[in-house]
Design a binder for these strands. Structure first.
Lengths: 161, 161
DNA sequence: TATTGTTATACTCTATAACTATA
DNA sequence: TATAGTTATAGAGTATAACAATA
């Protein structure tokens, strides 16, 4: 039951809380919008992310895909199970390192990736299209910085080199 | 295993995807950072949100708290169960409408709310403190706009008046 | 009839540990 | 020993439907 985010202002503590809550709200609503746009294709955001990465960067191991998409390796297993069962991607043993797979898109998978791209572009245009290019750049920089600060000193326990 | 968000640029479609992924990353890392800061108090972000709302706005029904924090009412039940079990808030029947509760903080709950506020302020300062005030305002405006677009036309199915 | 709160249920997401097969 | 992938499990978050008590 989406409700407009609560408005507050002035309070030095709750300003941060509001910003954090806004981050959550924007993310959740955006993900929901993407999922709704992808629903006719019978895939969800998690599938699209993998399909798009494969379409753009070519075959990759599950490990590489996990790192690329910032997903846990066990989450990747389940997503690949789903993609394989739907005939969108295949797991082929890498000849040079038989521990890894070379994950590849099937023709149908490539088609889904492209169709998903169109759907994602439509949603992206609605959500982000109204932003001036300069604002958009600022937004990317700010979100990147926030993520960095959150994983940085005092934040994350495995931020080793 | 947090990995810096993937960098990409130029691709008209993947720009949006990157922005969406950044939204997810920033949100998740920020929530994790808040949870870690609240861990010594034995509460999590969901508890703190309710405690802070009660501390600031005074007693409220579960319904009102759900709306205020954009939570499902059944989620609110579980959070209140936890707060009550920990002696941080109490459910008192509202005399004027015996269907509702008047949720109130206990003294211990109020203390947690304040201590949580301090912890949240520390995290907020680390995550958001480096932003210029003007950038911060822009960020709030952009996130609000994105959330509005996401729930707006073509997006959400219950966006009635 | 509508609303507040409760319960049951289910699916997604994230996270961890233990295991295998390869290296 | 270390890495790629698998499996099992658990908890958080989100969502829905059915229900009781009250309005």
């Amino acid at each position: 039951m989406p409700t407009p985010p609560p408005e507050t202002a002035g309070d030095p503590v709750s300003d941060d809380v509001v910003l954090g809550a806004l981050l959550a709200t924007a993310h959740q609503y955006a993900r929901r919008a993407l999922n709704e746009a992808l629903a006719p294709l019978n895939i969800e955001a998690r599938h699209y992310g993998v399909l798009a990465a494969l379409d753009r960067d070519g075959p990759a191991s599950q490990r590489r895909l996990s790192a690329l998409l910032d997903l846990d390796k066990s989450a990747m297993v389940r997503i690949m199970d789903e993609l394989e069962r739907r005939g969108l991607a295949t797991r082929n043993r890498d000849a040079r390192d038989r521990r890894s797979y070379a994950i590849e898109l099937t023709p149908e998978g490539r088609r889904k990736a492209r169709e998903g791209g169109t759907a994602a572009a439509t949603v992206g245009d609605r959500l982000f299209g109204w932003l001036e290019p300069a604002d958009r750049e600022r937004l990317v920089a700010m979100l990147t910085g926030i993520a960095r600060q959150a994983t940085g000193p005092g934040g994350d326990r495995n931020s080793g080199p």
